[in-house]
Design a protein around this nucleic acid. Structure first.
Lengths: 183, 183
DNA sequence: ACTTTATATATCAGATTGATAGTATGCATC
DNA sequence: GATGCATACTATCAATCTGATATATAAAGT
């Protein structure tokens, strides 16, 4: 289940260009499976080379050809095999938590700044999940609904934890040497 | 805040080898900042090349030299600068959620298998967080306590969501063409 | 005797990230 | 009328990370 597989999955909804897919990655998949051009274009090139997708170059005025990709029968087989994986991963990569492990090396001000920024970021994300997706709910598949709900639920929970436990990070730091005081 | 920075942070607790650090990544950082030898050794090599750490090769009987790394004054400055980053990231990479987006292309059996495996994995992780870390709580920094609690809280919340909403994934799939029936 | 686990290092192919680049149109700001 | 920015569309690249693998030794389990 890499970017290639997600691209295959997207193409079961109909043909699309790399640019279209990028927009879909941003709007729907962004919060749990980010992908930029640097992974989408190579993925599509590899898929095409292996016959899992095919594309038609649509000429445009003054713009590069639009390459519209479609999934092939082999592509559907490959996707089907990928969806048979019984243990898909779910990983977190958090500079935030890694940094908080070293809170005793930070000033109180630095900790507060990071925490406040993180809460603001979370609120922004929650607002995003509530606005445009609710309107599309008719066209959303059951899976997309599950995933959007997942994001809302887990992110709210995360927010609550930070608010209720941020005091922990300032406690018991009096006797530690602060290396980050000078900057 | 990459592997290099976390290595620097670990070294503020005292000298350690790459092997020692790998164990620490596994036990404490694993669930939010994984790192294998393939990133730790190159990170230490780069840090040493830049004078942010220094190492002493300790000869051993019948084993390769143990390279024991220590942080330098320049390393502390670099770490301090990294801890000043006001917006550290927190990213999720989930094959699981990506797959659930395509639940309408899966059989009910496949969905159940994935969900049951995921719940079992979550239980295993929660048990892990409760057993060895609780005993070490005296030696844990406030930051490590915050982060461990974060893991417990968010993972429990995630578990609850899956249990309470898994039915969504089977609903409304009758009129969809299933491509994954054959395997 | 065989396998696993632990100690220790290190490399490599493949994938991803984040930035950058090229080319054209339209829209707003100065 | 110029400058900057957003949108539309492609694509590449260095730095980094992942997961597997290689090399050695030895204790401990089966």
């Amino acid at each position: 289940m890499d970017v290639k597989t997600v691209c295959l999955g997207m193409l079961t909804d109909g043909p699309a260009s790399g640019y279209d897919m990028k927009k879909r990655f941003e709007s729907c998949f962004g919060h749990f499976f980010a992908a930029g051009y640097g992974s989408i274009y190579p993925a599509l090139a590899t898929l095409a080379r292996n016959g899992l997708v095919e594309f038609e170059a649509v000429p445009q005025e003054g713009k590069p050809d639009r390459k519209v990709y479609s999934i092939t029968a082999e592509g559907r087989d490959e996707l089907s095999a990928s969806l048979g994986n019984p243990s898909p991963t779910h990983k977190v990569r958090s500079e935030f938590l890694a940094m908080m492990c070293f809170a005793h090396l930070m000033t109180e001000e630095q900790i507060d700044t990071v925490l406040d920024n993180k809460l603001a970021e979370i609120d922004k994300f929650l607002a995003l999940l509530d606005e445009p997706c609710n309107r599309e709910r008719r066209t959303m598949s059951s899976g997309a609904g599950f995933v959007a709900g997942f994001g809302r639920h887990v992110t709210s929970s995360l927010r609550k934890y930070i608010e209720e436990n941020r005091d922990m990070l300032k406690a018991g730091r009096g006797d530690e040497k602060k290396i980050a005081a000078g900057g």
